[in-house]
């Protein structure tokens, strides 16, 4: 799996707080799934204050991406298989 930073992503929010990211996902995405910190999405374990909301809109995934020096970005990436993997979590709940 490719590194997130090398993928074709769109930045929806930059230098955001974890709350802003969660609120954005819940109010702007067609559907969302809550995951725990450490959930593996693409090639990374997710960082955040639980619950971490991942947004879904067709094959598009919206998720927070945190780095110590750059804060949290809310990224949007189109990836059918990863979207299906996240959507399957919702069905299991």
């Amino acid at each position: 799996m490719a590194c997130v930073e090398s993928m074709n992503y769109e930045i929806l929010l930059r230098n955001a707080s974890f709350r802003e990211c969660r609120d954005y996902v819940r109010s702007h995405c067609a559907e969302y799934v809550d995951v725990s910190p450490g959930y593996r999405l693409f090639d990374m374990h997710m960082i955040g204050v639980p619950p971490i909301s991942i947004g879904l809109d067709g094959d598009t995934i919206v998720f927070p991406f945190t780095k110590p020096c750059y804060g949290t970005y809310l990224l949007k990436i189109e990836d059918r298989s990863e979207a299906e993997k996240v959507r399957a979590l919702k069905k299991r709940k």
Partner: peptide, 15 residues
Amino acid sequence: HNDAGVSYAATIQAL
């Protein structure tokens, strides 16, 4: 010292 640090700490506490 910032929001990102809180996110990392919450993650570690959960893991």
